[in-house]
């Protein structure tokens, strides 16, 4: 069976390592990137079905990164994660076409259930 291909972009080393670990444990094929340069490289090669992007990235922010990723892979499903509970940030994330916005710290297994759900959307 083809595993769901996911890219996690977060500049926090242990956050992305933990998410990769949890996602791999649950049967996802998880790739990680710390910034937009690594992320764009991985998108080109791996063509992930879902991207999980932290809003606060060094140099260019998560919103701009998503628009670049979309120019490479227009049908990518995007989920934003952030430590900010500011309503403007959440609103912007949704306006940029994200499916959901998760505020850190959140329940990792609930998060994975959600990803499983959205990854089955287009196969149904």
């Amino acid at each position: 069976m083809k595993r769901n291909n996911v890219l996690i972009v977060d500049d926090q080393h242990w956050v992305k390592t933990m998410l990769k670990e949890a996602l791999s444990y649950s049967g996802f094929d998880a790739h990680v990137a710390s910034d937009h340069v690594e992320a764009i490289e991985i998108v080109k090669v791996e063509q992930p079905e879902i991207v999980i992007i932290d809003v606060n990235l060094p140099e260019i922010d998560g919103f701009r990164l998503l628009s670049i990723i979309r120019s490479i892979k227009p049908d990518v499903k995007a989920v934003f994660i952030s430590g900010s509970s500011n309503v403007n940030v959440a609103r912007r994330a949704m306006a940029e076409g994200a499916l959901r916005y998760f505020i850190k710290p959140f329940d990792v297994f609930d998060f994975i259930s959600y990803l499983t759900e959205i990854s089955q959307l287009d196969t149904a």
Partner: peptide
Amino acid sequence: NPLFSIRGFLQI
């Protein structure tokens, strides 16, 4: 951020 990674690893 560290709170989140600790919580996640504990869940794993």
